[in-house]
Design a protein around this nucleic acid. Sequence first.
DNA 1: TATTATTACGTTAGGCGTAAAGATT
DNA 2: AATCTTTACGCCTAACGTAATAATA
Lengths: 266, 266
Amino acid sequence: MLNLEELEQFVAFAECGTLSKVAEEFHISTPSITRSMQNVEESFGVPLFTRSKNRIALNETGEVAVTCARRLLQEADQALSQVRAYDERRKTIVVKSCAPAPLWELMKKLGGSHPGMTVSSEICQNAEVQNYLEQGKCDMAILPFPVSLPGWKSEKFMTEKLFVCVPREHELAEHTGLYWNDLNGFNFLLKSELGFWDSLCRENMPVSKFLVQTEEEVFDELVKASSLPCFTTDYFKEQSDVYAGRVNIPIMDEDANVTFYLITKK
Amino acid sequence: MLNLEELEQFVAFAECGTLSKVAEEFHISTPSITRSMQNVEESFGVPLFTRSKNRIALNETGEVAVTCARRLLQEADQALSQVRAYDERRKTIVVKSCAPAPLWELMKKLGGSHPGMTVSSEICQNAEVQNYLEQGKCDMAILPFPVSLPGWKSEKFMTEKLFVCVPREHELAEHTGLYWNDLNGFNFLLKSELGFWDSLCRENMPVSKFLVQTEEEVFDELVKASSLPCFTTDYFKEQSDVYAGRVNIPIMDEDANVTFYLITKK
DNA sequence: TATTATTACGTTAGGCGTAAAGATT
DNA sequence: AATCTTTACGCCTAACGTAATAATA
C-alpha cells in the first residue's frame, strides 16, 4: 500500500536529484530517505530507479510514477480541503439580508440562540437574496415580503419606517409628512450597504442624486457640516448628537413603511 | 497527512457500521481501529464522528470524508496499476507481423538477443501493421515491403516462396509451375492466422473458396483424408508425413515470391 | 578530498494487543 | 448478559540516526 509521506519525498527527489538534498529538505537522515525510496519502489512493485554505487536516478517507469504520485498528493490535498470546507460550512449560519437593521436584530438573536456558531452575513438586493434562497446557498434570509419556495417558510420579523432628516432651517423642515414626489429632485447624503433601501430611493426619486458614503465617520461629518438632507428610520430611537440640529419627517408613502420577513428552512 | 491504510479502515467502517466489525474484517484488535479512526479524524482536522459512550457513528462531515476517501483510494489503486502496466510494457517487445514464418524467425532471434524480455506478437493484415507502426503501438514489425515512416527503418529480413500442394493424382500435379489464373476456381484448404497470405490468395483467386481451419490437427487430418489442394512455402524444408502423397508446385507469379522487411525503431 | 548511496547497528518511539472500565441494549 | 467503545498499560516491532563502507567525480 502506498504511503503519502514517502510519496512526498519521492517527488521531492524527482525535483532535487539526490537523496542528500531531500534529506536536508525534510530534516532527516539520508539512510531514512534511502529506505523511503526502497519502500516506494516496493509499494509500486516494479523498479523505479537505476542505481550505481554512488548515484541513484529515476528510470523511465520512475518518471511515470512521479507523475502519478504528484497527482495523488494533489488529490489528497483537495480531499482535505473539501472536507474542511464542508465542516466550516456546517458550523456557519449564512444569512442574506435586504437591509441592515433587521440583520442586526437577527444577529443579536442568533448570538444568544446559537453560541459558538459562526454567522456569515451579507446585505444585498432583493433579487440576489432570492437567488441565494433558490440555490440553497444560505440558511436564513430577510426580505421585505414573504416568499413561497419549497423547503422554506416565511414569518414576520420586524417593521421599519423611513424618515427624511433635514436641518431645522431646511425648506422641507416645516412639513409634518412628505411624499417621494416632494423629495424627488433633492440631493441626499446616503450610506452604502443599504440593500433594498438604496434601490427604493433611486426608483422613487429618479431625478435626485445620492452622495453615497462608504465611511461612517465621513458620513457623520458631512451630516454635521452640510445642509444636505439624509435618511433615518424609527429603528434608531435616539440619534447621536451629529443630528442635533435636524428634524425627522416621516415619509407617508406606503412602501416607506416596511415589514421585514425572516425566511428560514422548514 | 492522510494515511491510506487508515482511510481503508475508515471506509470499511462506513460500510460495517461498528468498529468491532472492522476489527474482525482486518484481523486486528478494536483498540487499534479506535486509534485509526482518531488518527483519520486528526488528519482531516475536523470532527467526523458523533460519539456516545458505546456507539460511534459518522456525522455529516464524516460522510463527505468517506466519499473523498473512497475516491482517493481508488485513485491510489489506479496509480499502482498505471505504473505497473507501464513497467510491463517496457519489458515487452511488441511485434506485429503480416505473416507467420518471418515472425517465427524473428522470435528465434529475439529469444537469443533479448533474454528475459517478454515478446508479445500478433499476426495481422498489412494495413493493420502499418497502423500500429504509425501510432507507435509496437516495437517491431514485419511487412512484405519497406516503409518510410519517421523514426522507423526497414531492412530486408527473409524471403518466402509460395507453392501449391496437391496429391499426386490431382489434375494439377503434372505441372512444373502454376499461375494464379490456373488455380482460380479450385477450392483450397487453408490455415487461419496467415496474415497477408490470406488476402493475397483471396485477391488472386476470387472465384475459389477457402476452407479455413483453426485447428492444426484438423487441418492435417483433412490434408491426409482429402484431395483438396493446399499451400506451403519453401520455409518448410522437409514436410511432415501428412504430405507424403503430395507434390509441391511453385507459383510463378511475382507476388508469390515475397521479400519480408523487418521494421525497427531507428 | 568532497559528495553520495547504502549497509550495519544500537536506541528509542510508536503501534499493537491484552486487560479492564464504563455504558448501552 | 452481551455488545460496543475507549482508556490504561506493557511489550515488541520497526523506524530513526550515527557510524562506517564503498565508490565516484
